[in-house]
Design a protein around this nucleic acid. Sequence first.
DNA 1: CTCCACGTTCAAACCGGTTTAGTCAACGCC
DNA 2: GGCGTTGACTAAACCGGTTTGAACGTGGAG
Lengths: 340, 340
Amino acid sequence: MARKPTIADVARHAGVSRATVSFALNDRPGIAEDTKARVLAAAADLGWTPSRQARALSLGKAGAFGLVLTREPEQIGADLFFPAFIAGVESVIGQRGDGLMVHVTTPEQEQGVYERLAAERQVDGVLLTDLRHDDPRPPLMRRLGLPAVVVGQPEWGGGLPTVSLDDEPAYSAAVRRLADLGHRRIAHVEGPREFRHAHRRRLAWEQALRELGLPEGPVLPGGFSAEGGARATRELLALDAPPTAIVYGNDLAAMAGLSVAQELGVPVPERLSVVGYDDAPLTRYSYPPLSSARADARGWGEAAASALDAVLAGDEGAAHVALPPAEFIPRASIGPAPRD
Amino acid sequence: MARKPTIADVARHAGVSRATVSFALNDRPGIAEDTKARVLAAAADLGWTPSRQARALSLGKAGAFGLVLTREPEQIGADLFFPAFIAGVESVIGQRGDGLMVHVTTPEQEQGVYERLAAERQVDGVLLTDLRHDDPRPPLMRRLGLPAVVVGQPEWGGGLPTVSLDDEPAYSAAVRRLADLGHRRIAHVEGPREFRHAHRRRLAWEQALRELGLPEGPVLPGGFSAEGGARATRELLALDAPPTAIVYGNDLAAMAGLSVAQELGVPVPERLSVVGYDDAPLTRYSYPPLSSARADARGWGEAAASALDAVLAGDEGAAHVALPPAEFIPRASIGPAPRD
DNA sequence: CTCCACGTTCAAACCGGTTTAGTCAACGCC
DNA sequence: GGCGTTGACTAAACCGGTTTGAACGTGGAG
């Protein structure tokens, strides 16, 4: 198998210099039309393709974005957000042949991963997701000089450009709907405290209750997991005055909650209304179908990638983007509050 | 902010040549101990880190593996396999600072993505998953000279190295268990025909039935999706002689099946036993808990990455690996066949 | 005392692109 | 006819590493 042709081969074949080839291929001025045609023909003839590595070295660009997933090993695999998000990112950067470097790591090693990404210039920029309180990453990105876009609310980014998709309206709508249906004891099973989006969802629930003049129902941790959702639901249903509705931090916990209710003989929605978040593919086909909220993960990925492009192009302004908020999707898992 | 130090800076600081620095840093023979110490001190002093791009160019290695997910947009996000698989891959290649390039594409553009990966040498090799019948990728990899490892059964690889994890034993065990429980009408809701693993699962089910001398129950397509699983279940339960047990191609379809059974008032497991595949986090917390099969996706990722390492090291022999087969996990979703 | 081998170090070439500075011929103008 | 300008092209440097071939100083053998 012959060696892959380089620019020098193309130059020889076209009878010009390497510089001319480079200029012609990159469509820069100062090259005669017929010369350019000759070069392009030679390149096509030899089947030349650019070497990403050589181009990366001379341009100082990696041609890739980075995404670091920081999860405890056992939490990996429970997530429905990332595949769609990644698909969105790819649809933007794949156009021009760039790629997405995905790293999976643990909280302890997280900082080291970013440091290496920056030091070795393995990526041109990174997308930050799952922001935590006092997240060390925005200042770290600044210190490392690593371009970054935050996927989340503007105030989480510490000044970094953000691409936000508000989940508050969906929670408010869910709580209002439950109140309309007569519910007065509306509980919340929250996600991991350290995550800002989990916290934000809890605040949205609290605020909606306050605005409606309803008492703040019990809150239990559900950890965004099936196990946590099941445990929390068990506890809630064992209370003297159990809630008549539970709003969960995500679908996984809510689905587990549905099962627990059934196991305990608590009919849904007759005695308990249930709301999730994420609109996972399964929610529509649970029994009863789970009320949830739809956030466009794919569109979020697209927007985040475009925003990072804008940052790299020096246009920070265009990198602050707000997407349409998540939408509450009522289904049969909610119903009128029980009479007694 | 100062420019990132290069090898030339280190050389100047240590009072040696660039070549000596390179040799010292790479721990090669022919460098005096004290010189090496001086170089390392200088490098640490300046905070030098290698440039991945320069190294890639001179070594002709990209320092990354590729993983291409070929999915129709709407199927993205329904998958529980990849996050864990990716975590496994990362745990192997992340050690040495290499990364995983993830591309998401459609069937139409698939070939082009691989071609570009190969042409631009963006990755050192690729992992092939979700093999289809007459999959064009193994011959394509050969033609492109792109090192590859097939994630699946040895006979799927067209001679390429494979890392296999057999799901047959789990299906056989499930069917045998159901037969032991007295079931005689055992149906199957299969995954998309074009996938070899979906087909293999169906064959495993067929063969187990044959060995047990049981009639081959009805088979319906479920497409590995919740929607497909729900529809297939509805059809099966509407038959004159509905099956008393259904074995699904994956958990998503099985969970949807559970819900449909409930909706139709068919108690599980009293009148219908249900078996899934994947052991998703949610299965343990469905009602009743779903019998499934556990495949170690993370371990699979680790093995696949190691195998690709072996291929790149020229050791094709070490790249054929068989992992422990998937294990059947019986739970409360199966029970004795109904009497009538 | 000379010669050779060895351990150590270095200058220079190389990987495959991009970019700068400069050459050269054709052209228009006074 | 001399001169500056312009357009087309090229030689050479550059990005930041790795690797080759040769040079150098030293010690031991003859």
